[in-house]
């Protein structure tokens, strides 16, 4: 079934739905920027940029709350059903994932500040770059799939999370080896590990967003490995 959110008899309802979708996508844009900045701050030992990431966090939180309030009002006033209901639910669920991604970006920014103070550690940065690129692409593709109601693209993006998880495990093994070889590096490498962990979590949240694209368009709940709930795929 095609998705049309601009054909309600009530024009105000069209505008309300359009508006929460736009709010969520704007929030998504901010969060994607935040992740990029956090990774750059880490790679370039740029504590100024890291501070900026931490600062934006408050704005993201504020937007999540505003979006929730807006969605609550739509439910109270319109009692949305079918695709409208799924739109409202998916937007609020995604906002929550975006806020968590913002939290992870902030953690990375904090690691960046800590690592800058200790002097740079080249150990593990290649892995961070690699995984960061993968999860940033996932996040952008997930939001893009939502904008276009594109289930095929959401499913393809969702599948990329497996590779991210594998790369993360490989990186962890490698970093453990570094730490065994050079125990003096342990505290710095642990900071790198935490950052990797945050990136891996961002991948999981991007995957959740893809699942919400499927829920919105097909009405199928495929979370927690229930991909079989999506028929004809």
């Amino acid at each position: 079934m095609e998705m049309h959110f601009d054909q309600h008899i009530s024009r105000q309802f069209n505008e309300d739905l359009e508006s929460i979708k736009t709010e969520m996508l704007e929030m998504g844009g901010m969060v994607a920027r935040q992740v990029a900045d956090a990774v750059d701050a880490l790679a370039n030992a740029d504590s100024e940029l890291a501070e900026k990431v931490l600062h934006i966090e408050e704005e993201i939180d504020r937007r999540e709350m505003a979006l929730d309030e807006h969605a609550t009002l739509i439910i109270a006033k319109r009692q949305p059903a079918a695709s409208d209901l799924r739109m409202v639910l998916s937007v609020t669920r995604i906002a929550r994932d975006l806020e968590r991604i913002g939290d992870e970006a902030s953690k990375i920014a904090k690691m960046a500040i800590a690592l800058t103070d200790e002097g740079t550690s080249p150990r593990g940065y290649t892995e961070i770059r690699h995984i960061a690129n993968a999860v940033r692409k996932m996040l952008n593709d997930a939001l893009d799939a939502y904008t276009r109601f594109d289930v095929a693209s959401a499913m393809a993006t969702l599948a990329e999370d497996e590779q991210v998880d594998m790369d993360y495990r490989t990186a962890v093994r490698e970093l453990i080896t570094y730490m065994m070889e050079d125990p003096r590096s342990i505290s710095r490498v642990i900071n790198v590990l935490w950052s990797l962990r945050s990136l891996e979590r961002i991948g999981d949240h991007a995957k959740n967003i893809c699942e919400q694209v499927v829920y919105l368009v097909e009405g199928a709940d495929i979370r927690h490995g229930h991909e079989k709930n999506l028929k004809n795929f």
């Binding site: 079934m1 095609e2 049309h4 054909q7 309600h8 008899i9 009530s10 309802f13 949305p80 059903a81 079918a82 695709s83 409208d84 209901l85 799924r86 097909e218 009405g219 199928a220």
Partner: peptide
Amino acid sequence: VFTNPQHELTEAYITGRF
């Protein structure tokens, strides 16, 4: 019917579309 109707006419009616 109210979360994921199968026919577009049902969807249009319950969501208040044309």
